[in-house]
Amino acid sequence: MNVFRLTGDMTHLASILVLLLKIYATKSCSGISLKTQELYALVFLARYLNLFTDFISVYNTVMKLVFIGSSLAIVWCMRMHKMVKRSYDQELDTFRHYFLIAGCFLLALLVNEKFMFPEVLWAFSIYLEAVSTIPQLVLLQRSGNVDNLTGQYVFLLGAYRALYILNWIYRYFTEPHFSRWIACVAGLVQTALYADFFYYYFLSWKNNAKLQLPS
């Protein structure tokens, strides 16, 4: 464990807490893409299959349970909770995410570290996470103005993977046989997708103005 990865995990946890705060405090999920939440739930389920088979550390197990539990709770809330689901931007959240799932699974069958079921699913979860934010970014562009908590949620979600890239660079130089090129390349794509969001987020912070994404 290194400082980049720990801050990355804490940033990821913070993004989930901000999202839970927004949904719980405002009883609204306006501006949040249900499709991105469903993709993230799938990412965690596919990636953490080894939850009960490989014990790595208490921290690792606890965080996996938190990520799986919170992502399923958010999807449940947005689909079932009568107050919350009323505020869901159904007509704006129309990105066909099933294509993302199919494409990532096909890619995982072709490009993986070992052609074994757990490894293919792991690669699938890495590729899917890289593109899972697309429905959310599309929704933000369509919905124009973004409330603060939603903006902070998306910012933290993007920042965590950028910190993971620093972690991979650090591990590459400090560990002899470290090679996570699948996660690195996917992580770079994932972070690059946030580039324009980061730019407008920075502008809104610098000018102390409302976060506006050009539609």
């Binding site: 080894n50 690792n60 965080m63 570290e113 074994m116 792991w122 993971y164």
Partner: peptide, 10 residues
């Protein structure tokens, strides 16, 4: 056999 890369990251 080469141990499958243990995925120790979240």
């Amino acid at each position: 056999a080469e141990e499958a890369e243990k995925h120790d990251e979240l």
